Amino acid sequence: MRNKNLLEFCLSPDLGGLELFVANCFNDFRTKGSCKIAVAPDKKLDNYLEGKDKFYIKRNKFFPIIPALKLARFIDKSDIDVVHFHWTKDIGTVVLAKVLSKKKPKIIQTRNMTMTRFKDDFYHKWLYKNIDTIHAVTYQVKEQLERFIPKDVCPKVEVVYMGTKELDIKQQKVQSLKDKYNLTDEFIVGIVGRIEEGKGQWIVIEAISMLKELNIKVVIVGHTMDENYLESLKQKVKDLGVEDKIIFTGFTKEVDAHMKLFDVNILATPKETFGLVVIEAMVNKVCMIATNSGGPLEIIEDGVDGLLFDRSSEDLAEKIKLLYANKTLKESLALSGYEKAKEKFEASKQNEKLLNILKGM
């Protein structure tokens, strides 16, 4: 299998699971061959990839031909064989660049979002006709793609789960975080993700308000996407009288170190396509409680290696109380989750599967 020149492409302004996966692909693939990355300047992904060799393109939703022309020139100059894009809003730019380029690279899209309507109009049929492969992050996503994209233009769909790796977090670092947040012997409930309503931090706060008598604190990790929502969370904390139980950390690159503080981690989104934070918690030996829909259904076996809840604060409170009262169950679920993460979601194994797809195009 000959080496191919790869380009990771993502102009998203955010820094969540999707963008971190872009960074993980780039950091891994560039050690195994030729791989470049194109990002939007001065956005969160750009800043996250400190000191990396990056190609900059500014998104222009009104005149997409401008970034597409710039990308086409870069493709030809760098002899790019495969463009791997991740953010759905980049689809027009990437496909147009392929058409405008002399190289005519293969295109693969990692699909992180669900698809809920038919893509049978002329524009979408043109787009998908020019995409060679779609990487679906779950079998649920694969089923949706094959249902909603017309068969005559539907690209080949390959399923590869996202992966995570176990980091060596020193106990000294964990202790420094405990000192920073004034944590001692409390039962720690964590939730990691962007501060926006869809991530469901409000559900965790409501659940903890039902457990005031217990020695529990909540650590909310993530950068703020919606200032009004953050203020509403802080007001809810006051209204429910749980100011002494809630800690907002803000943005941090040390997510794994923060997870080492947790007894349990919560995923409270209504329908997470995959749930990278789920396997990240598992590999850190943290017990997971996740909503019973979407990606978590393909990761967690309820009662075996984690718990699922119906996204009500009442059900979440019951699940937290169960683990609080039963340390043996909590540790058993955490250990089973860890073993599953190492076996099924280990980053190097999953990245190798995806890289083989890219190289084989």
Rank of each mutant, 00 (worst) to 15 (best):
D53G: 00
D53Y: 07
D53E: 14
K54W: 01
K54I: 14
F55R: 00
F55Y: 08
Y56L: 13
Y56W: 09
Y56T: 05
I57M: 02
I57S: 04
I57G: 02
K58Y: 05
K58N: 13
R59N: 12
N60Y: 06
N60S: 09
N60P: 05
K61M: 12
K61W: 02
K61I: 14
K61D: 14
F62D: 06
F62Q: 07
F62G: 01
F62R: 04
F63T: 13
F63G: 01
F63K: 09
I66S: 06
I66P: 14
I66M: 08
P67S: 03
P67V: 03
P67L: 04
A68R: 03
A68K: 04
L69F: 11
K70N: 09
K70Q: 11
K70T: 07
L71V: 05
A72Q: 08
R73T: 12
R73A: 14
F74E: 03
I75T: 06
D76N: 14
K77I: 15
K77D: 12
S78Y: 09
S78T: 11
I80V: 15
I80E: 12
I80R: 05
I80C: 14
I80M: 14
D81Y: 05
D81H: 05
V82A: 04
V82W: 04
V83N: 08
V83F: 01
V83H: 08
H84W: 00
H84Y: 14
H84N: 03
F85M: 03
F85C: 10
H86F: 13
H86S: 12
H86L: 11
H86M: 08
W87A: 07
W87K: 05
T88F: 13
T88K: 10
T88A: 10
T88N: 10
K89C: 12
K89P: 15
D90H: 01
I91A: 08
G92F: 07
G92W: 06
T93L: 11
T93S: 04
T93W: 02
T93D: 08
V94A: 08
V94K: 01
V95H: 01
V95N: 09
L96H: 02
L96P: 03
A97N: 10
K98Q: 10
K98F: 04
K98H: 10
K98V: 02
V99D: 11
V99L: 13
L100F: 13
L100S: 12
L100Y: 04
S101N: 02
S101R: 01
K102P: 06
K102S: 14
K103N: 10
K103S: 13
K103V: 09
K104L: 09
K104Q: 14
K104C: 10
P105K: 00
P105G: 00
K106C: 11
K106R: 12
I108H: 00
I108G: 03
I108C: 04
R111Q: 15
R111P: 15
N112A: 10
M113N: 13
T114W: 06
T114C: 04
T114A: 08
T114H: 12
T114N: 07
T114G: 12
T114E: 11
M115F: 03
M115P: 13
M115N: 07
M115A: 03
M115L: 15
